[in-house]
Nucleic acid binder design. Sequence first.
RNA 1: UGGGGCGUGGCCAAGUUGGCUAAGGCACGGGAUUUUGAUUCCCGGAUUCCCAGGUUCGAGUCCUGGCGCCCCAGCCA
Length: 565
Amino acid sequence: MSESETKRPVDFIRRIIDEDLREGRHDHVHTRFPPEPNGYLHIGHAKSICLNFGIARDYGGKCNLRFDDTNPEKENTEYVEAIKRDVRWLGFDWEDREYYASDYFPQLYEYALDLIRQGKAYVDSLSADEIRERRGTLTEPGLPSPYRDRPVEENLDLFQRMKAGEFADGEHVLRAKIDMASPNVNLRDPAIYRIRKASHHRTGDAWKIYPLYDYTHCLSDAIEHITHSICTLEFEDHRPLYDWVLDNLATPSRPHQYEFARLVVDYAILSKRRLILLVSQGHVRGWDDPRMPTLAGIRRRGYTPESIRDFCERIGVTKNDTRIDMALLDNCLREDLDRRAPRAMMVLDPLKVVIENYPEDRDEDLPAPNHPTDPAMSSRVIPFGRVIYIERDDFMEDPPAKFHRLAPGREVRLRYAYFITCREVVKDPSTGAVVELRCTYDPATKGGNAPDGRKVKGTIHWVPGGQAIAAEIRLYDRLFTAPNPDGVEGDWLTLLNPDSERIVKTAFIEPSLKQAEPEARYQFERLGYFVADRHDWDPTRPVFNRIVTLRDSWAKVKNTQTENQ
RNA sequence: UGGGGCGUGGCCAAGUUGGCUAAGGCACGGGAUUUUGAUUCCCGGAUUCCCAGGUUCGAGUCCUGGCGCCCCAGCCA
């Protein structure tokens, strides 16, 4: 734990908890993370996971994982498994507290009976359309249903028969009897049970009726003795209903709901519906496509759980509607990776270099540290010989001002190797394209230092000609070209970035990378951070994904130069 | 002229009984170090807290009145 983390100010929710503890309203803290298993978790959920599990950790309490599985038509076990995998990957542990709202169906049913007996719930036989018509509008009160005053016995009978499967979907619904004239439309006799003859991923065909969210969530919290039920802002209007249900039933505990602003990140889509569309229409390769904001995608992309957690702490928890700059996530990533990722060399777009004065029959092993400032990360050896490959971008025949790399007649340093000077440029006679550089090296500069103290402006990366390994490198960029694709009403798919994925199959990596493990992360010097793809990496066909580039101040200089032209 | 929320630099965000020069991070600009144009390291910036009045010796913090933005009319969560 760093100094800055311990100093970070507490958010308003923790402040509420502090007060609850101080005033004796609670003597412990119990939270929950309640995903609906109808899709994959994304970076927005990470904020909620870190908040709920983080609070439990900070206060020595517990956090449950609870699947909010009350809608059988949209939920399935694939999602349940994926969610568990992702929460674990993020670094959180719910121990043996893996719960399902569906486990509470029997109790929830009993509670409903209780409400009916109290005259606080009734079976409505209006159609969905009719109910909507009578709900009123935001400015006009609703109209009571003709079934609103059905006798308790009749309600009981109907509700039991709903459960028994005697009616078709939509024929009846159980409604809480609250206030059809409430300015809060959520209180205008909300439906709490509907008939749905669908098979549930856990309860199978045991139930013909399923409880709705507002009714289920608060009771699930109460059953689990949740002390602080934390959700996002759009549920603020539902809090009176949350309270109404708990205040009208004898529950084992009395939780309270608190709301915070959900996470919105630039250039990303977080709406579940749209994410599903991206996957189902094949705009990406799946839920774990490295461009997806899903935790599965982020993981495959190579992001570390530590950096995601750090990010979630840095963005804070408030009720402000905000949009977070992607650069913050990138920064968390670079900070984490700079510290932990071993360095290696990879050439994306190889340009052959022949070192004319290097003996043809010789080669040598050059030692290279795995980290520039952390000796504990040890070192490896890179073979050097007469032929090497450098990055095509690192050579220019006619370089602009401030270009510190290779050019005709110029000398640069090959990282951890020698100084070389470009003597000749070999071109394809028909196309004029540069195909090879003829250079000389200075044997006295072995390791990269000149005994005469002469300096070079640039250091470039390289791989050995003979022993480099061909690799596939997948370069990723933001999936959308607009900062707020989720906020676009119309055809948001036109905002997809056509260059979000670029696959390079002709890259070379240094031989030491043959031992890479799937999910191992490296910094390829001067290029960025990369991860061995967890599914496609193979010793015979290495595949690396670019996680994030390095900061590149040369790119800025270059851009301003071209702008000024 | 329905209800519920929110408004502090480009993006987040501290500021909790009104009281020292309005924290910090990201981004940005400048400089130093550097065998990654990386890292690291300094330095820079809100006369001002959505606006306008008011209370006060003193207001981002209190009062009044505006303005702006977000959410809600699923038998979704």
